[in-house]
């Protein structure tokens, strides 16, 4: 992503009165939950992993699992609007 174009886009959106970036919330314990779920997955405790995912989903948090360059399972998360 071109930094300059992103900056232009954000400014243009601001002129339209549309705030694209949300305030970043304080650490609400999501990161530790995500780590806990990753541990559960790695130890094949799928019931626990699913429960955490469901719990987070109810708070509007979406998880995306992926493999990093070393082939390790990782999880990205974001707050849904």
């Amino acid at each position: 992503m071109d930094e300059g174009r992103a900056a232009d886009g954000l400014a243009l959106a601001a002129l339209m009165g549309i705030q694209i970036k949300r305030e970043v919330a304080e650490d609400t314990g999501v990161a530790s939950k995500v780590a806990e779920r990753l541990d559960a997955l790695n130890s094949k405790d799928f019931a626990k992993a699913d429960a955490i995912r469901k719990d987070l989903a109810e708070q509007g948090i979406a998880l995306m699992d992926y493999k990093d360059e070393a082939g390790q399972r990782q999880t990205k998360w974001e707050v849904k609007r």
């Binding site: 300059g4 992103a6 900056a7 959106a13 970036k21």
Partner: peptide
């Protein structure tokens, strides 16, 4: 959501 992801760390011009 797509725009927010694409914006990354950029600040408005």
């Amino acid at each position: 959501e797509k725009w927010e992801r694409a914006a990354g760390d950029a600040e408005p011009a």
